[in-house]
């Protein structure tokens, strides 16, 4: 009798422990930051970072203290290139002009959003002082060939050591991101392309800061 009672008691305790463990297991959920965290693929300078939706590699990196923005057109008859306008943009810091080559796997995508991420995690968005007609950053990246897009960052010089260009594809959740902001995990792919992996690389870039760098838009 006593043994049966003890056994029932043990069973009840075990069941309670299992239920408590199951309830506790539900606390192991990702918070909003984890849910929003992208899936990063890293690549050294010159090599391609292949994410699920696109591949990207960093090409030329130039630092400049000012930019010359040229708008040109080509005469249909003579084929001569004519300059329609020039704008000069300066900065007390430095412009980092990066050329990123990209291709997609499957569907066309646009890599319009890019950041320069410093070694300590500070992110600088690509400057809006240079329009997409000069950078072609909004051109579609498609399967089968590589296209070059330019991202220009206006950053302090000390941001360069250990920095990377981060390129990401837009969300494919459509209108649901706006209807339920923060509700759905994104798992967006991002390519992290090293600009200046160490102090020496940063020094090489900063030792060669151009007084002016030209970007051309063709009409």
């Amino acid at each position: 009798m006593l043994r049966r009672l003890a056994r029932s008691l043990i069973n009840a305790v075990v069941a309670l422990v299992v239920i408590a463990a199951a309830v506790y297991a539900h606390t192991f959920t990702m918070d909003q930051d984890d849910l929003d965290a992208p899936l990063s693929t890293r690549a050294a300078a010159g090599s391609a970072a292949a994410t699920g939706r696109f591949s990207a590699r960093l090409g030329k990196v130039v630092a400049a203290s000012s930019l010359r923005l040229l708008t040109t057109t080509t005469e249909p008859v003579s084929g001569r290139v004519m300059i329609l306008g020039t704008t000069r943009v300066g900065t007390p810091d430095v412009f980092v002009v990066t050329t990123v080559s990209a291709t997609s796997s499957g569907a066309p995508t646009r890599l319009a959003d890019a950041w320069l991420r410093t070694a300590d995690g500070v992110e600088y968005a690509a400057t809006d002082r240079v329009g997409p007609e000069f950078t072609l950053a909004d051109r579609p990246v498609q399967d089968g060939w590589w296209v070059d897009v330019v991202f220009v960052f206006e950053v302090p010089r000390e941001a360069l050591p250990g920095s990377s260009v981060v390129v990401t594809a837009p969300s494919s959740n459509g209108i649901y991101d706006e209807i339920y902001p923060g509700r759905y995990d994104q798992l967006l792919p991002e390519a992290v392309l090293a600009v200046a992996p160490d102090d020496a690389a940063a020094k090489r870039i900063l030792d060669d800061v151009k007084s002016s760098w030209q970007l051309v838009a063709k009409e």
Binding site: G106, A107, P108, P140, Q142, D143, G144
Partner: peptide, 12 residues
Amino acid sequence: FEMRDRTGRRWQ
């Protein structure tokens, strides 16, 4: 509109 092949690749 878009272009597609039968392997699932798409082009604008």
